[in-house]
Write a protein that binds this DNA or RNA. Structure first.
Lengths: 110, 110
DNA sequence: CGAATATACCTAAAATTCTTAGGCATGAAA
DNA sequence: TTTCATGCCTAAGAATTTTAGGTATATTCG
């Protein structure tokens, strides 16, 4: 019974948005970025992120490139053309979803 | 590959909030309410809702009561004392989560 | 120097949650 | 009388996440 479970479903959209904003990022960096951007509220686990990245690459949304940086190897991801096209609609979808939730949980003014 | 999957994780919190606002509701009613409140954007399936209600009752968050209404039987749910206590913290959690997502997907002013 | 921590990738089993696709039954509407 | 709305339920499968590892190099601290 874990309660980080609120994250479910939004991860791939967050990845698309981060890559759209930052051009290219590697896995470890994405994890740090999300943690930092959420003021340590959201903690993505590696076991969730890496499979998500692999799947998105398989689906042609991302492309990757290995690059050795100071002794270690990083795998940089970037949006493919297909990924670029998909980003906006996925973002719109997520925004619509968030708005819907807000409409329900907002203290109603009655 | 379905994309209503954004819902994941938030359902139980929505249920708590709806019951907190409306006192008592039955399953079918909750489904309509969420659909209506979200302007038909969010469509909870029965296969998701009923097991969620059962689990929440098992966990002591809800109590239920069968009541026949004009020939058909409705199962009304309401918050238990434990459910009432849990509601606010779950809502805060969800709000924090939504804010975190917003911080990432909001067009950054740079 | 040696140990611990941070960086950086990965995987597999289990748990959780949701979709899909049914089943059953009554009341109202066509 | 047949269809649609109401109202409950379940089970198989899919998808995603948690948990809990594994491997390896670089840096930091005692």
């Amino acid at each position: 019974m874990k309660d980080n479970s609120l994250l479910k479903g939004a991860l791939s959209t967050l990845i698309l948005k981060l890559l759209a904003d930052n051009g290219q990022m590697y896995g470890y960096e994405i994890i740090q970025k999300i943690k930092e951007a959420s003021a340590d509220q959201m903690q993505i686990t590696e076991g969730a992120l890496y499979p998500a990245l692999h799947k998105m690459e398989q689906n042609g949304l991302l492309k990757s490139e290995l690059r050795p940086v100071s002794g270690r190897t990083r795998k940089y991801y970037a949006l493919s053309p297909k990924g670029q096209k998909a980003t906006q609609s996925k973002l719109d979808q997520l925004q619509g979803f968030l708005s819907s939730i807000q409409m329900i949980i907002q203290p109603k003014a009655q």
